[in-house]
Computed example of a mutant assay.
Amino acid sequence: MRNEIDARTSIGTVQLRVSQLQRSIDFYRSVVGLRLLGQERNGAELGVPGSNRPLLKLVEIPDAIPRLRRSGAGLYHVALLVPDRRSLGLALRSLIRSGVRIGQSDHLVSEALYISDPDNNGIEIYRDRPRQEWHWDANGHVRMAVDPIDRDGLLAEAGDAPWNGLPEGTTVGHIHLHVTELPTTEHFYVDVLGFNLVAGMADSAMFISAGGYHHHIGLNVWAGIGAPLTPEHAPGLDYYEIAVPDTAAQMAVFARLQAASVPLRTDRGTVIVSDPSGIQIHIVVREPA
């Protein structure tokens, strides 16, 4: 039996490249609802009340070239998980008032809203249904769908309550990536890192998780099979963190990477590796909340 990644694994901080830092800060504060934790000349950290741990880091790329959606391997969206349905209703009401284009979907396990930042980095804001309402098949795959969302019900949950941004307890629930192709991607994330395959969409996408979650990482080839990695001088995903709960869990992943001859390096306790599409991952130790 293969070694599984620790069940308490989660997605940590996500670092995005942007073309105009102040414009992006303004967007993530006023539209998305994150708060500014810190800012330097070329970067910023954004989070939520009750925590100094950033959910997103932004880094400005000088002379950035424009990036179209689905133009290469890299970010499809980063998903911010709010703690309850009322919070999602408040976010929906605020997004409507902001005038941004809003996508939406009821995935059965969750209700989700989709927007894009000024550089076409995808953002999902969602809430989970209780785990007892999720349905799994005999193969251990979770049932998900792309049904219309109950927009009126969400707005009714919000009522007349004021919107003060995304609330305490919001996390990066998952990340969804465009990848170059699926077979080697599955081998890397499932056989080497140790995630479980929990859902798929024909031959175009798969979803993986730790600890019975509906998915921590989505992986698709919707940018095209063989799509090159989004270049470093374009806006997009710089890296994302896979957070494991202790050093033993990190070292178990490290050992599997070494056994599979995957190139890696370490930096001050972080294991840095790239997936088969070239997407950089930081494997960090972070005690569960």
Score class of each variant (00 low, 15 high):
Met1Trp: 01
Ala7Lys: 12
Ala7Phe: 03
Ala7Met: 12
Ser10Arg: 14
Ile11Leu: 04
Gln15Asp: 00
Gln15Glu: 08
Leu16Arg: 15
Asp26Gln: 11
Phe27Arg: 07
Arg29Leu: 07
Arg29His: 08
Ser30Cys: 08
Val31Tyr: 05
Arg35Asp: 08
Leu36Ile: 07
Leu36Phe: 01
Gly38His: 08
Glu45Leu: 09
Leu46Pro: 07
Gly47Ile: 09
Lys57Ala: 11
Ile61Ala: 07
Asp63Arg: 15
Ile65Arg: 14
Ser71Met: 06
Gly72Arg: 05
Gly72Ile: 05
Leu75Glu: 05
Tyr76Phe: 13
His77Ala: 11
His77Glu: 03
Leu81Glu: 01
Arg85Pro: 01
Arg85Lys: 15
Arg86Asn: 05
Ser87Met: 09
Gly89His: 05
Ile96Glu: 09
Ser98Arg: 12
Gly103Asn: 09
Gly103Val: 06
Ser105Trp: 01
Ser105Asp: 05
Asp106Ile: 12
Val109Arg: 03
Ala112Phe: 03
Leu113Asn: 10
Asn120Gly: 04
Asn121Cys: 09
Ile123His: 00
Glu124Asn: 12
Gln132Gly: 01
His135Gln: 14
Asp137Asn: 15
His141Asp: 06
Val142Phe: 00
Val142Pro: 00
Val142Cys: 00
Met144His: 02
Ala145Tyr: 02
Ile149Trp: 00
Arg151Met: 12
Pro162Lys: 08
Glu168Arg: 11
Val172Ala: 04
Val172Phe: 01
Leu177Cys: 04
His187Thr: 14
Val190Glu: 01
Asp191Glu: 15
Met201Trp: 10
Ala202Trp: 00
Ala202Arg: 15
Ala202Cys: 02
Met206Leu: 13
Ala210Arg: 00
Val221Phe: 09
Ala223Glu: 04
Gly226His: 05
Gly226Leu: 06
Ala227Phe: 03
Asp238Gln: 13
Tyr240Leu: 13
Ile242Arg: 11
Val244Trp: 00
Pro245Met: 07
Pro245Asn: 11
Ala249Ile: 02
Ala259Thr: 11
Ser261Pro: 00
Arg265Leu: 12
Val271Glu: 02
Val271Ile: 15
Val273Cys: 06
Gly278Met: 04
Ile279Val: 15
Gln280Cys: 08
Ile283Glu: 02
